[in-house]
Simulated assay, not measured.
Amino acid sequence: MTDWLTVTPGDAPLIVAFPHTGTDIPARIEAGMIDPWRARKDADWWIDRLYAFATELGATTVRTGISRSVIDVNRDPSGQSLYPGMTTTGLCPTETFDGEPLYQPGHEPDAVEIEARRTEFFDPYHAAITAQIERLSADGGPVVLYDAHSIRSYVPRLFDGQLPQFNIGDNGGVTCDPALTSAVEAACIASGDTHVVNGRFKGGWTTRHYGRPAKGVHAIQMELACRGYVDEPSEMTAATWPTPFDAARAAPITRTLRDVLTAARDFAISQRA
């Protein structure tokens, strides 16, 4: 654990990763940005708090406190787009989801700066995930890596209309056993809320990089629409967003997510029998 990277080891064959809940921006980087609020607007707000129960299930959690506006640890470090032909943000984003510039002119990160940020923040985060996968699979048993995300329900630049509540991604059935996807999907269906498998979000770099079911690592991504646990204002401003986390408000979706993670954990355990 460091002041920005937190690893909480558990004994179950389940890892929950939080790549986008961080809001820390080093002062030297923030000084070149246009608006600190804008630079934090697209965080996966409160997701680590929403999944606070994960450790009760024996899950290991890995979280970076660094803002995705500094470096997005769920993007391909080569710079290759995860969704060719579609709007997305890069390894070191220069604009928000809404297309607003993040940096003052002349302060955008160049190749040297991007590499420095990768060395300082990206590599240690993924080294931590790799270490936990190796620890939990040391006995030869399979492990599930669950990548936890959220996004506003409406982001016209990224997708049309309202996003389903639960967005499950396994990159078209590549990154995990279909039985795991089915178990996660069943928990979402039981909630009575909307869901989709491999819709707009099929799994980011974390899911695609680590998901090797033939080698015992099953990776799956969950992208939640924020409306499931916080109220989304009609107008996004520094005064209205983010709305505070309220455990009572989030209780219904928390129950579903507990079922989702339990299903993921139990899948991994069943494969060890």
Rank of each mutant, 00 (worst) to 15 (best):
G192H: 07
P242D: 10
D231W: 12
R208Q: 12
G173I: 10
D42L: 08
F245I: 08
G216W: 00
G58M: 03
I71C: 01
N171Q: 05
T207S: 01
I253T: 11
I129M: 10
R249D: 06
E100I: 12
N171P: 00
W241D: 11
F245H: 09
G172W: 12
A183L: 11
L102S: 06
T87C: 07
T60F: 02
E120W: 07
H126P: 00
E100M: 13
W241C: 06
F122C: 03
G10H: 02
D193V: 09
I15T: 13
Y103S: 06
K202N: 03
G216T: 12
M33I: 11
D72T: 11
Q162R: 14
A264V: 10
G140S: 05
A17F: 06
T89V: 10
Q132C: 10
A52T: 10
V217C: 01
R49H: 14
G85T: 11
D98A: 14
S69T: 09
L136K: 04
I151P: 06
R208W: 02
P244D: 05
D48H: 15
G32F: 09
I47V: 15
V260N: 09
A31M: 09
Q162Y: 13
R272N: 07
A225N: 00
L5H: 01
R227S: 11
A39L: 06
P26G: 12
P77R: 00
P101T: 04
W45V: 13
A148L: 05
I220K: 00
P93Q: 01
E108C: 04
I269M: 11
V143Q: 06
S78P: 01
I29F: 14
C226V: 10
L57G: 07
D98R: 12
L257N: 14
A263E: 10
G173N: 04
T175L: 09
I133A: 07
A116Q: 11
Q271C: 13
T60C: 07
I15V: 14
V143I: 15
G228D: 03
I47G: 14
A263V: 12
W37S: 11
K215D: 15
V62E: 02
V184M: 05
Q221I: 08
W205E: 05
G90T: 12
G32Q: 11
S153P: 13
A268I: 10
R157Q: 15
A268R: 01
P242E: 09
D177Q: 13
R212D: 15
H126D: 05
D48N: 13
M33Y: 06
T64W: 02
L224H: 00
G141K: 11
Q221E: 02
A43F: 08
A54G: 08
D170L: 09
M222K: 00
V230E: 14
R118I: 11
G10C: 05
W205N: 02
A59C: 08
P36S: 10
P19M: 04
A111C: 08
A59G: 08
V143K: 01
V197G: 02
A131P: 08
M33K: 05
A52F: 06
